[in-house]
Design a protein around this nucleic acid. Structure first.
Lengths: 234, 234, 234, 234
DNA sequence: GATGAATGAGCTTTCATTCAT
DNA sequence: GATGAATGAAAGCTCATTCAT
């Protein structure tokens, strides 16, 4: 199915390894990704059609398949464009304090995560939403492709962060940790994937310039409290 | 030209008013709803086709349109089948303690909610998941139909519960309440809409008999703690 | 295809042979015919669905098939309900003057036809329109069923009238007669099948009580003039 | 949600501005139109399915939607392909004699019309039939779309011709003119929309090469006579 | 690299009809 | 006679994808 002799769809679109500056968002493939991010975030993956994407990006319909091989390829590409910086930023954060501090506390870890999320958000206005929608999707049984993609590409990097998190919650049993982790991932995923809608509900009149920092600042104490709540006796 | 009164798609499937026993799951329309619940929960609404539903329900493809008018009609019907009992159970819970107690505390409210959710779950194995997926969908801008349906049918009943909840969090500013509400709704929605996947991750070998009670018991302390966490100063 | 042991769908619905009085329009089958006439006249045969008919007639969807066997059976029945009285009235008209007068002139023939059409129109408000639409349909190559039905049931009776008509136009060659006949049939068919629309265009504000007599009175001189126009030399 | 600008369904099929020669009937979109014309003329619009059209045209089923957006779009396109040349030819005819002659008489007007109709007919063998069927349809109450399309696109151009026609019939009252116009339109519409069937009836053995010129030559005197017939006193 | 045209598979929906009662 | 439920076939349309240029 994949053995076609076609442009290799390398993950390395022009998206330079370090996304420092060079915001070359003007070329076809970037325009597609950007349009896709917005539409995926607003509507979902399945409900977004290639025509909507290419129309919004103002490129030819066939361009998506040319550049990304398939719709799924585009989704993975969009995912990579957020997940890679996210993991980079998390590792960067960990290593920064890892030198002298023996083990980061829960607030520090949350801070690192928040900084990483903010950095993803600053890529484009929908990077974060679409990333969160993707993580949500990944829990559906029918989306094993997606699960596999994430696990293969980012499994180990994510595991490192979770490892640190686990250290900070040694009071919890393994199962309790598992569930709390997902409760709180639920908060993050739901809030951030719907953040445009929520901000619009919160401030109907404001110009819609999302301040993720503010949202995260509200969320962190809640998450910490949730993580550290006394468990129900079983 | 389009206002023909087809078979009125009565909400009064055989679904007897009190869903005590009488699990008459054998008639066409119930079988459709049940199949739809399972597939919607596992795959999502858009990604589930009518053919999948009617195949699983072992009924004719046209039966869905006969009984529910359209796919959207089926979705609304599925929604109603969970939301109505949920609201009923919540109101029942509220009224039960409302007699002598002046105002319920946060734990009592969570208990009432948990009982209501459990009752929904006991309808069928996927009622709760699909309900949560529906609430999630309702936050997407492109799903105004769904928003409107929920608001029109259940808006006021939900508002009552939120009103009680707000009374218990008078320490929070209006905006802080808004965000915390959604953080914690995120927990509930994410956890319960993916509960089958999560249980399978948690206990890969166990027979998949979902114990929502157990999940909710783990979740309530976390939610209460999150709701009552000290706010970040702004 | 037709050998099913079912209610015989006799052409003799209650529609008594002589439609003198007894306007028993209250029973199911009459209500269906009446609804069908209206919808067929306004929309056409194919574009009218059984649901529209049964809804308008306020009867069960299956009633049409029960009473008429199929949609085509209903169409034939509707046709018969107009064509039979039409032929009756024409023959009646012819016989009335046939005793002492040697051969009727063109104006007399047109008068007979007009009287017959008016009588059909007085059955119900759409009998005439639907009859004309039927005749129009009958010229389509794909409607051989309909052609055959009309020819078998009414061919000979119509031929008699045409025979008289031909006698009055002996100046015309056979071909010229053929074409003029159809030119003028076109006038009649188009005008009467669209008469509701035309009356509404003519008198937008008037209550829509169709006066076919008036229309026919305008049309007869035109048709006579057309029939008797000097031919182009060939 | 539905306003996506699909391939713009340009009216500029290859159909070269001057349809002199270059019968480039080989490209997809022309083949579709041609197949559609034939089937629409023979069977009607509703009774012709997209599958019949694409099968006859030997193109993919989706090609119709690609090129014309929808079945209705195809119908409009087919309509335009006849109506535009018709109006052009009429205007051309009018302007040609308009220079020195003060006002054209009825025979001249009919001649202009006939020439225009012949020119439409020479586009393809079914252009004229389908055009006439379309005009017939446009009188049905349920076809407001079609009415609007014709009125918007061609209303004014048609009105000019009618204006000239009215001048030649100043003896008639406004209402009398209205009715005679439609009587005679009925002749034209009925005859030409069924011309293949009528020619086949007239000359069962002849090769079916339609001679519209001959038909029109027979029809014009009839129409003129009808238009000028002495009115019934009211 | 890019694009207009085309396509196979599959979508939801509609239809006339049938069946069990 | 009459009816609610059900159904097979087919309708118009959409989708991601491919191909020739």
């Amino acid at each position: 199915m994949d053995e076609l002799p076609r442009p290799k769809w390398r993950k390395t679109n022009n998206m330079s390894a370090d996304n420092t500056f060079m915001n070359s968002t003007s070329d076809t493939s970037s325009r597609i990704v950007q349009a896709a991010e917005k539409l995926f975030a607003e509507q979902g993956f399945k409900e977004t059609t290639m025509r909507q994407i290419t129309t919004l990006a103002d490129v030819n319909l066939a361009a998506v398949n040319y550049h990304f091989g398939s719709k799924k390829g585009l989704i993975h590409s969009v995912a990579a464009q957020s997940l890679t910086p996210l993991c980079n930023a998390i590792e960067e954060g960990l290593s920064k304090l890892g030198v002298n501090s023996p083990a980061p506390g829960l607030p520090e870890l949350m801070h690192i995560l928040a900084v990483a999320l903010v950095r993803v958000h600053h890529r484009t206005d929908y990077s974060l939403s679409v990333l969160m929608r993707l993580l949500d999707q990944a829990y559906r049984p029918a989306q094993q492709d997606l699960q596999q993609f994430i696990r293969e590409q980012y499994g180990k990097r994510i595991a490192v962060f979770l490892h640190y998190l686990r250290k900070n919650t040694s009071a919890l049993s393994e199962r309790e940790f598992f569930w709390r982790l997902h409760f709180l991932m639920g908060s993050v995923i739901f809030t951030l994937s719907n953040m445009h809608a929520l901000v619009a509900l919160d401030q109907p009149d404001a110009v819609e310039e999302i301040e993720v920092e503010a949202i995260l600042q509200r969320m962190i104490p809640v998450i910490c409290a949730g993580m550290q709540a006394p468990g129900q006796e079983h």
